[in-house]
């Protein structure tokens, strides 16, 4: 298929979209902020000698900036994990949740919440770290298990791995359901928050691990762009082209586990970003991973920021969970793609 836009134009547009999303995310809220105030507050936050109203600077530094950075990193990471999984499974409809890492991470978080509640509540200073860590561990554990089950004679059998992922995701889902059934009211509300995802309550403490993982993905994944292209031809074809596909698959699995685990730990389960963004970018730019990887990063960040803005304004002053917004946007879009794809085939 011919790409819809030239590579350069597409990246310019994606850059503009991201700037727009950043601006909206920083300026929309109960306290309206014009561009000048916003820029002054940002500069002051970064330590530059500029004066901003104290209230504005406080809001930007303590509430909106961490939230925006969280959306930026989580959106980019989820989209990149989508690219990695769709490449690994050679299926444009594959989703990072498929190999069970989302469910595993959510189960890890849920276990920590319930454990904390049974111990009389986690210490507030420690709880974001403990929750992040257990979500992260849960995601990695499930992924490692799926990977092990899918490995035969030193090679990863993708079909087995996929089925094992589906089974383990269902198992993790059932265990989360059980925890929800047993939980008291307050714990239930926290669990629900985790399951639907939200950027609310973002803090720098929650942000750092995710930013680190985002940097790791941005560093490693583009190196495999050509290998991912070859992998789409088929595993043996890629091997005949000299790609070390066992290493490639190991790295894809590890990076996805890290990425989705860190994203779920930081802001809960947010669906459809990893599915929608690479799909859209393929329509825009074609399937070549050399463009697809950076484009998905930019578009994923923009999409999540815009979804978060919607989550904040739709029922203001209350807030929707962002997972609800992405699912409301994503599911119909996805069905449309399926129907359109079937009409073509």
């Amino acid at each position: 298929m011919k790409p819809l836009l030239s590579r350069r134009l597409a990246f310019v547009l994606l850059g503009v979209l991201l700037l727009l999303a950043l601006w909206l995310s920083l300026s929309v809220g109960p306290v309206a902020m014009d561009v000048a105030t916003l820029l002054r507050a940002l500069a002051a936050t970064l330590g530059m000698p500029l004066q901003a109203p104290e209230q504005a600077q406080l809001i930007v530094a303590q509430i909106r900036l961490p939230r925006t950075l969280l959306g930026l990193a989580a959106g980019g990471v989820l989209a990149l994990c989508g690219v990695a999984m769709q490449g690994l499974f050679r299926n444009p409809l594959a989703d990072p949740g498929l190999i069970g890492v989302s469910s595993g991470a959510a189960l890890g978080a849920a276990l920590m919440i319930v454990l904390g509640a049974s111990l009389g509540g986690l210490a507030p200073a420690w709880s974001p770290y403990l929750l992040s860590l257990s979500a992260f561990a849960g995601g990695l554990l499930v992924t490692a298990l799926v990977y092990r089950l899918g490995r035969r004679q030193g090679r990863v059998d993708v079909a087995t791995m996929l089925l094992a992922g589906v089974a383990l995701a269902a198992l993790a889902g059932a265990m989360i359901g059980l925890l929800q059934y047993l939980a008291d009211d307050a714990t239930l509300r926290t669990l629900t928050f985790w399951n639907l995802g939200s950027l609310n309550g973002a803090s720098y403490a929650r942000l750092w691990p995710l930013l680190l993982v985002a940097a790791l993905l941005l560093w490693r994944l583009p190196r495999w762009a050509q290998g991912l292209n070859a992998l789409l031809l088929g595993e043996s074809e890629a091997r005949h082209l000299g790609v070390d596909i066992e290493q490639l698959k190991r790295q894809l699995i590890l990076l996805t586990a890290l990425g989705v685990g860190a994203a779920v730990a930081a802001c809960g389960m947010i669906g459809f970003v990893g599915l929608m963004v690479p799909h859209l970018m393929r329509l825009l730019l074609g399937p070549d991973h050399r463009s697809l990887i950076p484009a998905s990063m930019l578009a994923g960040a923009s999409l999540l920021l815009l979804a978060d803005v919607l989550a904040r304004v739709l029922i203001a002053p209350a807030e929707l969970p962002i997972g609800v917004v992405t699912a409301l946007l994503g599911a119909p879009f996805f069905l449309y793609l399926l129907i359109k794809g079937r009409a073509h085939a």
């Binding site: 298929m1 444009p92 789409l232 031809l233 088929g234 074609g286 399937p287």
Partner: peptide, 14 residues
Amino acid sequence: AVLPQQSSLSFAFS
């Protein structure tokens, strides 16, 4: 170089 019997490429490369 090896040409397999069938290829399963399902992405819209040119």
